[in-house]
Design a protein around this nucleic acid. Structure first.
Ligand SMILES: NC(=O)c1ccc[n+]([C@@H]2O[C@H](COP(=O)([O-])OP(=O)(O)OC[C@H]3O[C@@H](n4cnc5c(N)ncnc54)[C@H](O)[C@@H]3O)[C@@H](O)[C@H]2O)c1
Ligand SMILES: NC(=O)c1ccc[n+]([C@@H]2O[C@H](COP(=O)([O-])OP(=O)(O)OC[C@H]3O[C@@H](n4cnc5c(N)ncnc54)[C@H](O)[C@@H]3O)[C@@H](O)[C@H]2O)c1
Lengths: 218, 218
DNA sequence: AGGATTTTGTTCTCACGTTCACAAGCTCTT
DNA sequence: AAGAGCTTGTGAACGTGAGAACAAAATCCT
């Protein structure tokens, strides 16, 4: 499930606080979810808790990390070293989560050869050899939207099987390749929609038919 | 719904191609969703289509933009002008989606007073007056995780009612304040989990209990 | 003009995820 | 050692969202 990384982060925070055991209530509060949901999620991994006591923080942390594949580091290539790509390259939080930015690729001759966060930007032509040499399975697309599909095709043909796409474009890939999309504009648009509702509802009784998903307040 | 911005983007792309009318099938394909789902979504807005013909692209685009509150521009403040905050500030795609980065705020004396993407970075102390003067309702948190809750409190007390949080921390806010969280690490972790499954499943028949959400392939 | 055709709007069904509630099980106290 | 008190794991209800299927309506062709 997509919630496991959240639990993992909460557990790591507990470890840092020197807490060695915790109940599902505590952990659920730290992760911001319903305790029952958390217990059900964890039960899919196996029975790692002790009734009457709770969960051993360190042990559970390891189990989730193993399930997530974080016992090893995953090498990742970022394609498109612009504003966003550079910010991602510089981010130190990835390394503690089993993610290593192993390579940067761009098509801009100006940018190729420059060093960003200790990694030299390579040309698109090197993509296949980079993927092969590092054994890269995961890639990030941070190019403009128009280039996204072409980059995705190149990545797939180079052997990448998981793609995180930041470009505002829908990329289609062969079956078996995983694609996740993050669209930062849309996140803000959803908030704007919220505000729009708010101000539209306040005066008249103009009831609207639906609610935007996501968490509102707590 | 959270899909409206996707439809809006697809419609804008159609406008750019000079297409003036389209069926739900066309639009659904462009937006990457099921045609029935799209029609159901649009029907909540009202009956803007014509049976036997389809939807008038320009008219529908306006209706969705109105529903999303994009007939006006929303002023946004970004708190934390580090790598990520700077990248967001520099992004030009927001302006075409009704989002305007009106102000930047940081706590680092080194950063205060510098200009990023044409906007001068202000100190935290100015937050309240900035929010008041611009009539800001939406804010972005791009500070380290430890600072996130404090920043959120300051934002709420300044009058902000919608927050987009990039920090890996769960912020709690009073009822009525909308919070959305974007966690880029988690996105990559989910892909790593996918790869983990893939490599674990390939050899043995080690069936796993669940599937990670999100789109895999198409 | 009338039927064929296309496409929307809607209803119905189904499956999934969430949540409540409770039994099973562990520990600590008496 | 036995019961009291927690806490997990899970079975069952609930609500929500997705997809298929169909009826209503508008255009086009003959
Ligand atoms: N804050 C942000 O920066 C932000 C916010 C929302 C969405 N996005 C999206 O993220 C993507 C990147 O944004 P950005 O601000 O970093 O853009 P940018 O223009 O700063 O960087 C894009 C980079 O991609 C490279 N590039 C272009 N075509 C390429 C190709 N065919 N192959 C390889 N590299 C190529 C360019 O040389 C450039 O370095 C865009 O799609 C944008 O819409 C960015
Ligand atoms: N690619 C990325 O940069 C990336 C990826 C994933 C997550 N994140 C998250 O996004 C957030 C920002 O990342 P970043 O790389 O830009 O970090 P950064 O260190 O480059 O920037 C953080 C900024 O916040 C400011 N700040 C710190 N405390 C503050 C406070 N109390 N009030 C106001 N401003 C304060 C700092 O002065 C700095 O300018 C972090 O929480 C990080 O975990 C970033």
């Amino acid at each position: 499930m997509a919630r496991l990384p959240v639990y993992l982060r909460a557990l790591t925070a507990l470890v840092d606080q020197g807490i060695s055991t915790c109940s599902s209530n505590d952990l659920a509060a730290a992760a911001g979810v319903n305790p029952a949901k958390l217990r059900k999620d964890l039960s899919y991994l196996g029975s790692y808790g002790t009734r009457g006591v709770g969960y051993d923080v360190e042990y559970l942390r390891y189990q989730i990390a193993r399930e997530l594949g974080q016992t090893q580091d995953w090498d990742v290539v970022i394609v498109g070293v612009g504003h966003l790509g550079s910010a991602l390259s510089a981010y130190r939080g990835f390394s503690t989560r089993g993610i290593r930015i192993a390579a940067l690729v761009d098509s801009d001759p100006e940018r190729i050869g420059t060093e960003v966060a200790g990694v030299t930007v390579a040309p698109m032509a090197d993509l296949e050899s980079i993927v092969r040499e590092h054994g890269i399975a995961i890639a990030v697309i941070a190019t403009p939207g128009e280039a996204a599909q072409g980059v995705a095709d190149a990545l797939v043909s180079a052997g990448v099987t998981s793609i995180l796409n930041f470009a505002p474009a829908i990329v289609t890939v062969p079956e078996g390749v995983a694609v996740r999309k993050v669209d930062l504009s849309i996140e803000l648009q959803i908030l704007a929609y919220h505000e729009q509702r708010r101000s539209a509802e306040a005066p008249g009784g103009g009831a609207g038919p639906w609610a935007a998903d996501g968490e509102v307040s707590l």
